[in-house]
Amino acid sequence: GATAVSEWTEYKTADGKTYYYNNRTDESTWEKPQELK
């Protein structure tokens, strides 16, 4: 099967917290998305 390329990108805020942003859905989350686990 084809490997899905994750749409999630990991970013850090100014105070060093990590969050994740999805370019396709324009969604952001503090929790690590399922695709990255």
Rank of each mutant, 00 (worst) to 15 (best):
T9W: 06
E27M: 05
V5R: 10
Q34G: 11
T3D: 13
Q34S: 13
Q34I: 14
K37N: 13
T25Q: 02
E7Q: 07
P33Q: 02
Y19R: 05
T3K: 09
E31H: 06
Y11D: 03
G16E: 02
G16M: 00
D15H: 03
T3N: 14
N22F: 00
T29E: 04
N22D: 02
T13K: 02
E27K: 07
T13N: 07
V5F: 12
T3L: 10
Y11W: 06
E31I: 11
R24K: 13
S6Y: 09
Y20C: 05
E27L: 05
E35Y: 06
D15N: 06
T29K: 07
E31Y: 06
E10K: 04
Y21E: 05
T13M: 05
T3F: 11
A4Q: 13
W8F: 02
K37A: 13
T13L: 04
V5A: 13
T25K: 03
S6A: 09
K32G: 04
D15L: 04
T29A: 08
Y20D: 02
Q34R: 05
T9D: 06
S28Q: 10
A4T: 12
K12H: 10
K37G: 13
T9I: 12
A2M: 14
E31L: 08
Y20W: 15
T13S: 07
E35V: 06
K37D: 13
T18K: 08
A4H: 13
K12I: 12
K12F: 06
G1V: 14
T3Y: 05
A14G: 08
K37F: 13
S6F: 08
N23A: 15
R24M: 14
Q34F: 11
E27W: 00
E35L: 04
Y19M: 09
Y19G: 05
L36F: 11
Q34A: 12
Y19V: 06
E31F: 08
K17Q: 11
A14V: 11
V5Y: 12
W30H: 08
K12Q: 11
T25L: 06
A14P: 12
R24H: 11
K32I: 13
G16T: 00
G16H: 02
Y11F: 12
K32Y: 06
K32A: 06
E27D: 04
S28A: 12
T25D: 03
T13W: 02
T13R: 02
K32H: 05
W30N: 08
E35T: 05
T3Q: 14
E31P: 02
N22P: 01
P33V: 02
A14Y: 02
A2N: 13
Y20N: 00
T18N: 07
E7G: 08
Y11L: 15
K32Q: 08
T29I: 10
W30R: 04
S6H: 09
T13H: 03
N22Q: 01
T3G: 13
Y19H: 04
Q34Y: 10
G16A: 00
T29D: 03
E7D: 13
E35W: 07
L36D: 09
